[in-house]
């Protein structure tokens, strides 16, 4: 069914659209403009310099390192989050003693800002003044304190784990919403047919949860790809640029080194990467949905 079309729907989306175009559209235009110009140390536009900024970026070895780490970071955090959130959501969806409390605890990281989470973890992970090592040593798990953030690979791993931890609440909420909307009768029918729980999961839960998983993937990829606070607060991309991802590298270029033209170029490249990802994802995975969409 469609209520009378015409100008009414357009009028309804217009105010919001106007705000979005203004607040997000204009800066994008500004970014594009800056990327093609020579920009002074303090952001004043000098002359047009064509693709020089982009050439600078592609000649910079640190850019490629950051690009690779961004891909690892995004895949590891999003993958880890999904792999943990689905079973968690399935457990939280079942009745058990203390479920309310468990739900509250799992959601808790959401209530602190990312920046503060990172600050607290940095303080706790400190090799000798931090409570993390002290606790592990009290429990006899560690003999010697470990410098968690002293070496790039290890620091990056720690940061990925924390990234997963803070992404779980949002993802679990989406999944829980999906799970509680699943029709119970298909499970009952499957149980009558003698299907094991694993069969149920594979043949009923997973397919029905697909739209939820898809949206969780797209949104998480976008958020994680662009996420600055965890890495910035804990290591500032160091040691020796070993934990730099594109966002942190861009932040340094723009606000420490004052290379605003080059930073604008990287921003646009990042935008392009995300867009290509989303388009591919939508084409490959969300196709069925797109069909449903057209029927509306």
């Amino acid at each position: 069914m469609n209520l009378s079309a015409g100008f009414k729907p357009l009028a309804m989306i217009l105010p919001g659209l106007a705000l979005a175009v203004l607040i997000i559209g204009y800066p994008i235009y500004d970014l594009g403009y800056a990327s093609l110009h020579e920009v002074s140390r303090f952001g004043q536009f000098r002359g047009l310099n064509g693709l020089t900024n982009f050439r600078d970026v592609f000649q910079d070895p640190l850019f490629y390192g950051s690009l690779i780490r961004t891909v690892i970071w995004t895949f590891a955090v999003v993958g880890g989050t999904l792999a943990l959130s689905l079973p968690i959501a399935m457990m939280l969806n079942e009745e058990f003693y203390g479920r309310g409390l468990a739900r509250v605890i799992i959601m808790l990281p959401w209530s602190i800002s990312l920046t503060m989470t990172a600050v607290v973890w940095r303080w706790a992970l400190n090799g000798r003044a931090g409570l993390f090592n002290a606790t592990l040593m009290d429990l006899g798990i560690l003999k010697e304190p470990i410098e968690w953030l002293g070496e790039a690979h290890q620091a990056f791993t720690v940061e990925i784990l924390i990234g997963i931890l803070v992404s779980i609440p949002f993802t679990t909420t989406i999944f829980l919403g999906g799970l509680s909307a699943l029709p119970q009768d298909s499970y009952e029918a499957a149980a009558v047919d003698g299907a094991t729980r694993w069969d149920q999961f594979r043949h009923i839960t997973l397919p029905l949860m697909k739209p939820f998983i898809n949206i969780a993937v797209v949104l998480n990829v976008i958020y994680v790809f662009n996420s600055l606070p965890i890495i910035w607060v804990m290591t500032e991309g160091g040691p020796a640029n070993g934990t730099d991802i594109l966002v942190t590298y861009l932040y340094k270029l723009a606000f420490r080194f004052g290379q605003l033209g080059k930073a604008s170029a990287i921003s646009l490249i990042m935008f392009g990467v995300l867009m290509v990802f989303t388009i591919i994802y939508v084409l490959l995975v969300m196709r069925g949905e797109a069909g449903a969409d057209a029927e509306e």
Binding site: G127, R128, E147, G150, E151, A155, G238, P239, A240
Partner: peptide, 11 residues
């Protein structure tokens, strides 16, 4: 101290 690269000024 071990791993100086994990020690900022403040640390």
């Amino acid at each position: 101290q071990p791993s100086p690269t994990n020690y900022s000024r403040e640390d």
